[in-house]
């Protein structure tokens, strides 16, 4: 854009579109986040780190990031299976199952949390079968993972579906005629094509899980050092009229999330390029 002799663009409206996109992004994302960072800067870096490295805060960060990663990983595996089923196979009630996937989007998270806690409690429909096996879910960190898996599922499935749809069944047939085993077809042909989208779905589910509060507090048990999530500590600060402390925790979460998401994006970029590179290589005579 800054080049003096940029060639005329085929599509009109770049200036207007870019301006609109920037203003919109600033209004919706950058200004609130900027205000948050500005507010927390009243504490100084030292003050922020002091708050974030307290014993309870560290434990909460571990629980929050650990449970979010675990939930996103579970969704990565099982969301892929669900998406694959929904795209590649026809079965009665497929439409219904397909729309079920969106429910976690629509359900108020508090409702989800209360429902899950009721199901997984010792006398709940699921909990009563798990508890004799020595598996406690409700009111343990495991419960947090369950809630976060629930809310994260649609992100993975909905990201993967269009990508899987784009893979022609002929590609698999071609691989088979060239003598590839089923496992080889999956590892060499299908997975590389799906992987970037899977990473996107994973990072969306992960990011969503990090900020989740409503569903988690009803199933977590909220015991200090055991099952407290960082958003609960933020609420705890607000209950002490300590807006500054709350912003400090929020900024720390934001910074860690940003680093992790950036890393995932880089990985995705690498995966996409590697894939493209190999296709070009393979196309050479």
């Amino acid at each position: 854009m800054s080049a003096p002799h940029s060639p005329p663009r085929v599509l009109p409206g770049l200036g207007l579109g870019l301006g609109y996109a920037l203003v919109y992004l600033s209004l919706i994302v950058l200004i609130p986040l900027g205000a948050l960072i500005l507010k927390s800067s009243e504490l100084g870096l030292h003050g922020i780190l002091d708050i974030a490295t307290g014993e309870r805060a560290l434990a909460a960060l571990r629980v929050t990031f650990g449970a979010s990663l675990a939930a996103a990983a579970i969704n990565g595996v099982f969301g892929l299976i669900v998406a694959w089923m929904l795209v590649r196979y026809d079965f009665p009630g497929k439409r219904l199952v397909d729309s079920l996937v969106d429910l976690p989007f629509a359900l108020p998270t508090a409702v989800a949390g209360i429902t899950l806690a009721t199901l997984y409690a010792g006398n709940g429909w699921i909990g009563r079968w798990l508890e004799p096996l020595g598996l406690k879910v409700a009111y343990t960190p495991l419960g947090i993972v369950v809630a976060l898996t629930f809310i994260g599922l649609p992100f993975v499935v909905r990201t993967l579906q269009p990508v899987i749809e784009d893979i022609e069944p002929e590609v698999e047939e071609a691989a088979a005629t060239l003598g590839a085993s089923r496992w080889q077809t999956f590892v060499r042909i299908l997975f590389p094509a799906i992987f970037p989208a899977l990473l996107t779905g994973f990072s969306l589910a992960f990011a969503r899980a990090l900020g989740e509060y409503g569903s988690v507090i009803f199933i977590a048990g909220n015991l200090p050092l055991v099952s407290e999530i960082t958003p609960l500590l933020i609420i705890s600060k607000l209950e002490q009229y300590d807006l500054l402390g709350a912003t400090a925790l929020a900024v720390v979460m934001l910074a860690i999330s940003f680093v992790l998401l950036l890393a995932i994006n880089l990985l995705q970029w690498w995966a996409a390029n590697r894939h493209r590179g190999s296709v070009v290589e393979g196309a050479r005579p």
């Binding site: 209360i114 806690a117 009721t118 409690a121 010792g122 006398n123 709940g124 409700a138 009111y139």
Partner: peptide, 8 residues
């Protein structure tokens, strides 16, 4: 709810 309904 936890006490009455979930019987904890």
């Amino acid at each position: 709810t936890t006490f009455m309904q979930r019987r904890i």
